[in-house]
């Protein structure tokens, strides 16, 4: 790592250190307002109170795609500019994105039980979110498979971009496959006919969850930078102790 490269993570750390408390506070306030609004929202004439699940299901589903977009932007930063901060951003986003995708699946399944009568329906949306979840897990497996962080970053960047290209194709094929096999009785939510009484709490919750992601992502990026510093220091320590003892000494040989 060069000195000029280190300058930016250091500035990033000091900037985010000052910013994070405000972001966390804003997240908490917006989420609390959102929770209050969704608690007081009226029942849907068709679904009853289960419409309240939508207020956390839809923001998580939106974030599951948004986080992949953030990782794709970071992947471009990794491949084009080889910026270490982009590596850090991509790595920190993956587990958070996987968590939100997992939540979208769980809440979708809990929503489906009263609506469809089963926990899992091979519905087009649930199925494509499931595939997205598998891709998040694959990406995390890739990050964990390699020790050298910059080598892992470049491989993960290629995979992230290929995934971003492939996701619309997968979505399209799953939709097509689903209309082929779909039993007609499945309930569909009318996206455009969403009432204002539901739209406002939904939007507030979406903003709240997005703020939550930004806060968590910045904090996780800080951790990742610190982890890299630990790694660099440990390597310097190992090198220093190796040269002190001399190359001939068997004690300095790494196991």
């Amino acid at each position: 790592m060069k000195l000029s490269d280190l300058a930016n993570p250091t500035r990033f750390l000091s900037l985010t250190g000052r910013l994070l408390p405000y972001l966390a506070a804003a997240t908490a306030i917006v989420l609390l307002i959102g929770l209050y609004l969704s608690a007081t929202a009226p029942d849907d004439y068709q679904q009853g109170a289960t419409v309240k699940i939508m207020f956390i299901h839809v923001p998580n589903a939106w974030l599951s795609m948004f986080v992949w977009a953030v990782m794709s932007a970071a992947a471009l930063g990794t491949l084009v500019w080889r910026h270490p901060l982009a590596d850090v951003a991509a790595k920190a986003a993956a587990p958070i994105g996987a968590s939100f995708t997992f939540l979208a699946l769980v809440t979708g399944s809990l929503w489906g039980r009263p609506m469809w009568g089963t926990y899992w329906e091979w519905d087009a949306r649930l199925t494509s979110v499931l595939i997205l979840f598998l891709m998040y897990l694959g990406l995390m497996a890739l990050w964990r498979a390699v020790e050298d962080p910059s080598r892992a970053a470049r491989a993960a960047a290629v995979l992230t971009l290929v995934g971003a290209l492939n996701l619309p194709i997968i979505k399209f094929s799953v939709d097509w496959w689903n209309t082929l096999h779909q039993p007609a009785s499945v309930f569909r939510m009318g996206g455009s006919t969403l009432d204002r009484a539901f739209l406002i709490p939904l939007l507030v919750m979406a903003v709240g969850f997005t703020l939550l992601f930004v806060t968590l992502h910045l904090a996780a990026m800080r951790n990742e930078i610190l982890r890299r510093r630990v790694r660099a220091l440990q390597m310097m320590q190992a090198r220093a102790s190796a040269s002190e003892l001399g190359p001939a000494s068997p004690a300095s040989q790494p196991a």
Binding site: G48, A49, T50, T107
Partner: peptide, 10 residues
């Protein structure tokens, strides 16, 4: 309503 447990669980 009747599906309180699903809402609370999610």
């Amino acid at each position: 309503g009747p599906y309180a447990s699903f809402i609370v669980t999610s």
